[in-house]
Simulated scan of single mutants.
Amino acid sequence: MVMMDAKIMSDALTRALNDLAAGRPVILTGARDGGPVMVQAAGAVDDTWVNFMAREARGLLGMAITPRRASALGLSLQPRRNVGRPVPLYTLSIEAAVGCTTGISAGERATTVAAAAVTPARPEAVVTPGHIFPQVSEIGTGGQAEGALDLLRRAGVMPVAMICSMLDFEGRDADDLHACTVAATLDLAIVDMGELGLV
């Protein structure tokens, strides 16, 4: 059950929130710090969904987490360089401390997402470096992580997400047209940051 009155939301946003609450991924567009991303509640992630995102979104697989969770997991931030444009606030990459060998398989990446999503968060649950790349949500930036966690909160789901950036079929950063095509092909909900009032 979503947390807002469906009558004041667009059909796209209503569907996205219902799908997230049901454990399905959605596509988020319009972030200031990058192109479209697939978003899924971390609690719904398994090896099948990791493989789905790796195959269909094709970009960097990571997580969106709150600053409090990053701190509780003992994750320090990667340094930012002044690149003249908004960029995601990444922490060190992570791996589950237990249950991983190489860490790259879909199953082991799902294990890592689950380890980082446990409440209460525990620093001993993850090690660095690894094959999952957390982004910390920065309120007011209109970034991918802020949008992903806002969607989960509205859906009534714990605000920890698996996210995957999207590439087009030629391996370039996907644009919104490509994201819409993928959403239609895969029957995924798609929602823009503007509908969340974050940009």
Rank of each mutant, 00 (worst) to 15 (best):
A70G: 13
V39D: 03
D11N: 07
Q78M: 15
L61T: 10
S165Q: 15
T112N: 14
V26T: 02
R32L: 14
A117T: 07
L92K: 13
V50T: 04
T48S: 15
I27P: 01
R15N: 10
S137K: 04
L20Q: 00
M38I: 01
T102C: 08
G171M: 08
L198Y: 03
V191Q: 01
D47L: 07
V199N: 14
R32K: 05
P134G: 08
L77C: 09
L167C: 05
L89W: 09
R80S: 14
T111P: 10
T119K: 02
Q78N: 13
V136I: 01
G30D: 10
G194Q: 01
L151M: 04
A21Y: 12
A22S: 06
A125T: 09
A106W: 07
L186M: 15
L28G: 00
P36V: 01
G140N: 10
T185Q: 15
I94T: 09
N82T: 09
G62C: 08
A64E: 13
V113Q: 06
V98P: 11
R122K: 13
E146L: 01
V157D: 09
F52L: 08
G59I: 10
R24M: 11
A183N: 12
M162Y: 06
C180M: 15
V87K: 09
V191C: 03
A6C: 08
D168N: 04
W49K: 10
C180A: 15
M9I: 09
R153A: 10
C164R: 01
G147H: 05
V98Y: 13
I139T: 14
D46L: 04
R85W: 12
P36H: 02
